[in-house]
Design a protein around this nucleic acid. Sequence first.
DNA 1: AGTTTAAGTTACTCATGGGTAACAATATAG
DNA 2: CTATATTGTTACCCATGAGTAACTTAAACT
Lengths: 222, 222
Amino acid sequence: MGNNIGGINRIGKTHNMIKKVKLLKPALGREEKRQLKLDAILRHAAAAFMEKGYYKTSLDDIARLHKVTKPTLYYYIRNKEDILIKCEAVASQRINGLLDDVTALDDNGFAQLKKFIEGYVEIVTDDIIRCHIRHRGQREDPAAREASLKMHREIEHRVREIIGRGVADGSLRPCNPTIIAILLFDALNGISAWYREEGDLNHEELVAQVLLIVTEGVKNKA
Amino acid sequence: MGNNIGGINRIGKTHNMIKKVKLLKPALGREEKRQLKLDAILRHAAAAFMEKGYYKTSLDDIARLHKVTKPTLYYYIRNKEDILIKCEAVASQRINGLLDDVTALDDNGFAQLKKFIEGYVEIVTDDIIRCHIRHRGQREDPAAREASLKMHREIEHRVREIIGRGVADGSLRPCNPTIIAILLFDALNGISAWYREEGDLNHEELVAQVLLIVTEGVKNKA
DNA sequence: AGTTTAAGTTACTCATGGGTAACAATATAG
DNA sequence: CTATATTGTTACCCATGAGTAACTTAAACT
């Protein structure tokens, strides 16, 4: 169950190709239009947060990026923190979707872990996910804070289970699944902070190196 | 060349044991006293930043922790950002000190890498280091920002060199030292966010698991 | 002693930015 | 073609918190 915000950034292009956008609009229901705009706002906000950080980015900045004024944002979001919460919802869906796919696989723990790593490196490229990884934890509202921690624990727990399964079925070497899951997660999440698709390092090489260290380690036994 | 702020938190105890602190004070020069207080402020600030985050921690909060009023802080620091800069200086000294020790070792790349990991897990326990790892990158002042990035690059570069050396001398399996260094760093830095010495997970177990994944990987070859 | 310097305090200023009230335009429906 | 939600705007409020000025107290040196 992948991602409900796939083609949002194609809106810009549509806008360039067709002058009277009005002709196109009625094709979409109000609720869908609203959802689309919300997603666009989230993308703009996430990009800004990644560049300047949450606190150094004002709502006016985000509004400017979206070419509206600040109060308009409040039609789509409850408050500034709500942006992070909504980003988290998207992130949760995508990551848990990946985990659904991976655990549905009829294969041993190692194979599942491998698939997870490949998928996660893909996911971590998205600005909204990046934003969530970087700003996870900063919740003013205690309830939101708790929810955030819970969702993070759940994901970590699912990864831990994959590793545990691998140890049980013999495809993974005996280890402490809790620690290994956290270490792996931190390394993967770290990728979101430095990896850019436009750069000279391609996806395959990156995945290959992650898999190298996770599966074989770096010590030479020859 | 370890750490110049080793026994700061012992001041509290001293204060409890000896009533007339005045009798003790003259043993220290003014400059040293000043340095001691600065370090204490840094510790208080770092602890607060780790708990509430940089932006949610006001200078009044820090002053309160230190049992002084806000303007007094300005006797020791230039401004709020200066606290991060000073934490970074401490971190730089400790990490580069470790790297000095490690690279001075007359042994192969793998052995050096192992020593580095052991030492780094130790370092990452310190609040000031934690603070630096978490808040590295948020610099208002462009010059400070550049300096921060440069220092971080330098450290990463030294780790990369150790790995490269290992590949060259055959103690490490052929790999991309740049990527491996970054992944390793992210995993190690991540530790600072969750590991507490007081917890039930002891140091040795943690180091053992990190070394397990780095050296052997988790895939079972049996 | 008594003068100087370090260390700390109270009481402000002032920019920033989140959030809102009241009003204007635009689209959808009947 | 009017009536009514839906979007959006301009103009404001106000809490927060960084940084400063002016003044007081404590320590140190000769």
